[in-house]
Structure formats: C-alpha cells, structure tokens
Design a protein around this nucleic acid. Structure first.
Length: 380
DNA sequence: GCGGATCAC
DNA sequence: TATGGTGATCCGC
C-alpha cells in the first residue's frame, strides 16, 4: 500500500486522530530504569507508538498482547470456579509451604551484586572523552545496546530501536559496539572480584554476584566497607564506576544494586524483619525472574502488584499456577532466593539466529539455513 | 520430547 | 528504511 500522505508542518504527533490509542501501547521502555526519573512517560509512550504503529513488529506485538489477555481471562474463569473446599485445600497447601520456606531461610551469608554503570557507553567514553557531555548510545539505528545518562534523560535506553531513540533525542550520538573491548574491560573487573570471592558468579560482562561472607570475617570489615573497597578498586583498574547491592541472598542483593545507581550502594542487613519490610512494599517487577508478562497476569488475575500481596494471595497462587511458579512467588514474598552456592554446570546448548527481511522461496530459505548452519558450525 | 513462551543480559 | 542475539527454563501438548 502507498504510505499515507505526510502531514504538513513541523510535528506529526498531534492531533491524535485515533482516540489516543498510544495510551494502550505499553512497551518495556516505559518501565523505569536508572536515570529516567525526569522523563515524560506519556510523551515517550506516544512517540514509540507513533513510530511503531502499522509495522510488522507492531502487529506481532498486538498479537502477543491479545494472547496474554486471553490467558488472563482463562485464569479468571478458573479462579471463579474454585469451590470453598478446594480453596481451603489450596490455603492449607500454601500455608504449609510458607512454613517450610521460612524454616529454610538462610541469614548466615552475605551476598553482593555488582553492576557496572551504563557499561558499554562508559567504556566508549573512556576512549573518547568528548562523548561524556553528549547524549550517546552504543548500537545502531535498528537497536541500542545501552545509553549514557545524558541520553536517558530523553527516555533513550537499552533495547530501544535506534530510529525511535533518534526521534526522542535528535542529537543522539551513535557509537558502534565493540564487544572485544568490553570483554577485555570485563576481565579487569573480574580480576578484582576474584580477590574477594574466588568462586564469584559472573552473570554477564557487566554484572556479578560475590559471596563476601568469608572475606568480611577474615578482614574484620563490614559488608558496606568491602563494597566501598571493591568499587574503589574497580575504578582504579578501569576508570569506570559501578553500583553494589548487599543482602543475605542474591535475590535481595540484585534488587539493592539498582537502588543507588549510578556509583552507589545499598545494604539490607541479615535480619528477618529487615528483609520482610524491605521486600513487602516492593513492586514485583523489581524481582529478577518476574517480567512483563508475569507482572501483567498477576495484576490482571489477582490484582497483585507488590511482593506482600504475593503472600496475601498465596492460596490462589497455588490454585492457578504450577507448583514451581507458586513456590517461586511465595519465596519472593518472603525475600528468599539464591543463598546457596549453585554447583557449576556445563553449558547445555549452542545456537544462532538472525532477523531477516521476509522471504518465501524454498531455495532462499535453504540458503538462509545454510548460512546459519555454517555460522553455527564455526562456533562449535 | 518438542516447540512456544518467558526471562535475563 | 529501520524493533537484536544467546542461553536457560518452564509449560502444554
């Protein structure tokens, strides 16, 4: 189809002919991220909608959205059909699990989560200090890996398509990613981490978990002091800042590292009531493992938005979700998760995939598969 | 056991 | 003009 005629004038955002449809287009970008406090969320949502509508991507997003809404309706129906007897059975099941989980609570270890600040962008700014004062994103017009804090003021952030970012921030500077460079820098941070926990758990190039229990004891230092020291050493070695979170387990530590970002730290003491009061008012979306879909279904079916409400609705969690999921939600409500050292596991898979323009001829599809298989072969 | 969904980075 | 790639896990069929 020919494109619709371009409206005259400087901006095409207003008037909104289609009944403010943008209000219903929620993306991952409208979710708050560090450095995005001053962003006009409505404007952001509106721009993303206007740039997206009509695209194949957008149509697919709508299809997925409809599937989720259907799932919510199905769960609501199941919830309505639960008899008082069954309800009592689920309540007893949930109460029993609550006690078991509580009995398993481990407050004996101190975990720290270290998270580099705007890592790729910060590394690029080391090589070109003139980027420091400009809004800048690492990535291209199709996808942004990360944005510096100048750019985040405009709502530009990781996982956003570059052409939308440019619309939000016309002077945005794009820098091509250089993963080898980030890997080398990451290795420098890991040398530091190794000195505090030999068995630290790297999660990505810019994040790691450290069990600093032994280190605190040996050196007679508090967890906060150790965190200050680690952050200082990381800065000495890389000239980059990072943030840290400290808590009795990885679930808590991870949430904490985001609180005083960038270049800050936060601690939840190893104390049951401190953990509970910290977690209870938190949005479930802050928890690693609860994404956009889980947030939407929990809210749509049970009106659950905070971690405390996960405990309040524990019977229905066991009625509507799998044992594994209900267990996880309950543990989240109690602020329990990841206090043991996971035993090392071998990699389970290797794969590759590529996004490409639509094709349909068999020979084209086979060529595409051969291309992917070739890349996979060389990886293996 | 498999494919689709979800999630994290 | 244009919306990523890799790996893990869970669920339903």
């Amino acid at each position: 189809e020919p494109p619709p005629p371009k409206p005259r004038g400087e901006e095409s955002l207003r008037p909104i002919s289609d009944h403010q449809a943008w209000r219903e287009y929620e993306t991952v970008f409208t979710n708050a991220k560090a450095g995005m406090d001053g962003v006009d969320k409505q404007k952001l949502q509106q721009v993303v909608y206007e740039m997206s509508k009509g695209s194949r991507f957008f149509v697919n997003e709508q299809r997925k959205e409809a599937t989720i809404l259907q799932r919510i309706e199905g769960m609501k129906e199941r919830a309505a059909e639960i008899s008082p007897e069954a309800r009592g059975k689920f309540q007893a099941m949930a109460d029993r699990r609550l006690l078991e989980l509580e009995a398993s609570r481990d407050l004996s270890r101190v975990w720290m989560h270290v998270d580099m600040d705007a890592f790729y962008a910060a590394v690029e700014a080391l090589d070109d200090p003139s980027l420091r004062t400009k809004p800048m994103a690492v990535g291209g017009t199709s996808m942004i890996c990360t944005a510096n804090y100048e750019a985040r003021k405009y709502g530009v952030r990781a996982a956003m398509p570059g052409f939308i970012a440019r619309k939000l921030c016309p002077h945005l500077v794009f820098v091509k990613p250089d993963f080898d460079k980030y890997t080398r820098m990451s290795e420098l941070t890991r040398q530091v981490f190794r000195g505090y926990d030999q068995h630290f758990l790297p999660r990505s190039l810019d994040e790691a978990y450290l069990d600093i229990t032994a280190c605190c004891k040996q050196r007679g230092m508090s967890a906060s002091q150790i965190a200050e020291e680690i952050r200082a050493r990381v800065y000495e070695v890389t000239q980059l800042t990072c943030s840290a979170g400290i808590g009795p387990n990885r679930l808590i530590a991870k949430i904490c590292s985001d609180i005083n970002k960038p270049n800050g730290q936060y601690l939840v003491p190893n104390d049951r009531s401190a953990v509970l009061s910290f977690i209870s008012s938190l949005s479930i979306r802050k928890v690693s493992g609860i994404g956009k879909v889980s947030e939407k279904t929990l809210k749509g079916v049970l009106s659950v938005t905070t971690c405390q409400e996960l405990l309040d609705h524990r019977a229905m969690l066991f009625a509507l979700y799998s044992r594994i999921s209900a267990d996880f939600f309950l543990a989240v409500g109690l602020g329990i998760g990841g206090s043991e050292h996971p035993k090392e596991e071998l990699r389970k898979g290797i794969s590759n995939e590529r996004t490409f323009a639509p094709i349909s001829a068999e020979c084209q599809l086979i060529m595409k598969l051969e291309e992917l298989a070739g890349m996979l072969e060389s990886d293996m």
